[in-house]
């Protein structure tokens, strides 16, 4: 599987999270699993939502050869009211839906769009001590 994220900070956050969950036996993972291998950094939200981005050609090669069989997209919706095409929850979801149609992948795909952004999500999580939503989705 592959988790597709916007930037390096997102990747580092998810790796820390996964390592922490592993350490606390919340998830069972083989010792030799390298979490890096499952995360693709796209280099920003606009690139993540661009089906022509060269990284999607690379991922298509991996899908066609049986290396990748599931995809999870995680990105920020940024601000709710904004005149940019893919900002806000509604527009972000629409851009993701369009991306999936354009990619024409024949694998199972899912998405988690952060309300506002990762920082906001972290603050909210600390406040509520809630369970991480990506795990519920996945």
């Amino acid at each position: 599987m592959v988790i597709i994220v916007e930037g390096k900070d997102d990747k580092n956050f998810f790796i820390s999270l996964l390592n922490d969950l592993k350490k606390n036996n919340k998830i069972i993972v083989q010792d030799n699993i390298n979490f890096d291998d499952y995360i693709e950094v796209m280099g920003g939200k606009s690139k993540l939502l661009d089906s022509h981005h060269t990284k999607y050609k690379k991922l298509k090669m991996k899908i066609d050869n049986g290396d990748v069989d599931k995809a999870l997209f995680i990105f920020d919706c940024d601000f709710e009211i904004d005149d940019k095409n893919c900002n806000g929850m509604e527009k972000s979801q629409k851009c993701y839906d369009d991306l999936i149609v354009d990619l024409k992948w024949n694998i199972k795909s899912n998405v988690h769009i952060f309300n506002k952004n990762l920082d906001y999500f972290l603050v909210e999580t600390i406040k509520t001590k809630s369970v991480i939503p990506i795990l519920i989705i996945w």
């Binding site: 390298n34 890096d36 291998d37 995360i39 693709e40 950094v41 991996k62 050869n65 049986g66 290396d67």
Partner: peptide, 9 residues
């Protein structure tokens, strides 16, 4: 650079 495994799948 992403530390991905390229030695087979």
């Amino acid at each position: 650079e992403q530390n991905h495994e390229v030695r087979g799948w």
